[in-house]
């Protein structure tokens, strides 16, 4: 039958129903899929973020893989410790996964992550990027897009373009870096499976629509995740052993189709949208050039 059946995902649940993510939360979809791909022998390490709250309160938890909550800035270091402990104990078949928000990754946690990547730790770090500090109430992060309303850019919107963490990670020359979107499920799952096979530091950056923070209809999470790719706002690529490959090359749709579904961009002027669109095109074309030239990080 279905396209989904062909993806070979298990019916086993590792994110259990009855968690406390908001209606239509992208992070919950992302985590659910990630765990279905990685399977039972996965250890999650999670810093302060929405993912620490959606687990539910002690003594119950909605996650069915061993999970350690850890301080906001320390994910990269904590997974290094877990990974080395498993190594010295001779355990080789367990995936040690850092699962962190954009704030915990591109801002406060970037140092620990960079250190772990530089040391070549055997870890998989996944950033689910909902493009703001959602857990504390939608404050601007280094990953918030230009123009977006947040509670700390309440009137004029964010004035800077976001930090490009996947390329920063690629510059660490680690074996695998990828971006993904739940709007392109097959691409996302293929990348997760690939990351599963590789040893060493692996970094995956997932787009994670957030109905509450992005001010969008909770039903539109998947639609928006797909439009992000189709408008080139969220390019899908991977950097394997230093080589850039754009993995999905959609015919570009106008940026407005993506941003008009989200209240956070409501106040953007046409001039600002144009500026944003130019940057989106510039970045996408830069990636294509990198791919075409065959340059290696």
């Amino acid at each position: 039958m279905s396209a989904v059946r062909n993806l070979g995902l298990t019916k086993e649940r590792f994110l259990l129903p009855g968690h406390s993510a908001c209606h239509g939360c992208g992070l919950a979809i992302n985590l659910k899929i990630v765990l279905k791909v990685l399977g039972k022998r996965t250890i999650l390490v999670i810093p302060a973020c929405c993912s620490s709250v959606i687990q539910g309160p002690y003594p119950k938890v909605a996650f069915k893989v061993p999970t350690m909550n850890i301080a906001f800035a320390s994910t990269g270091a904590a997974i290094s410790g877990v990974s080395r402990a498993l190594k010295i104990r001779g355990i080789e078949d367990v995936f040690v996964v850092g699962w962190a928000g954009d704030g915990g990754t591109v801002d406060i946690g970037i140092q620990a992550l960079s250190g772990a990547a530089e040391r070549g730790e055997n870890i998989l770090y996944i950033c689910y990027d909902n493009q703001a500090y959602m857990n504390t109430g939608i404050q601007r992060s280094g990953s918030t897009p230009y123009g977006a309303w947040t509670t700390t850019t309440p009137i004029v919107g964010k004035k800077q373009f976001p930090k490009d963490l996947p390329l920063i990670m690629a510059a660490h020359r680690i074996p695998y870096v990828a971006t993904a979107s739940l709007g392109y499920l097959a691409d996302m799952i293929r990348k997760l499976r690939k990351a599963k096979e590789i040893k060493g530091p692996r970094y995956i950056h997932l787009l994670s629509p957030c109905p509450v923070g992005w001010r969008h209809d909770s039903a539109h999470t998947v639609r928006i995740a797909k439009l992000a790719v189709d408008t080139w706002a969220w390019p899908l690529y991977e950097v394997e052993n230093g080589r850039v490959k754009v993995t999905v090359k959609p015919k570009r749709k106008p940026l407005k189709e993506y941003i008009s579904l989200q209240g956070r961009f409501k106040r953007l002027t046409d001039g600002e949208i144009k500026l944003m669109e130019e940057e989106v095109i510039r970045r996408y074309e830069m990636l294509l050039k990198m791919e075409k030239s065959g340059i290696e990080f």
Binding site: I70, A73, A77, S80, G81, R84, L86, K87, R89
Partner: peptide, 28 residues
């Protein structure tokens, strides 16, 4: 000494890695 030495990039990370290691079943 049969041990994993992690040349971390800060003391914050040193203790975070100790926590990860101890939780992973090693004497840190």
């Amino acid at each position: 000494l049969k041990a994993e030495f992690i040349r971390v990039e800060s003391e914050h990370s040193a203790m975070a890695a100790c926590i990860g290691a101890a939780a992973g079943g090693a004497r840190a």
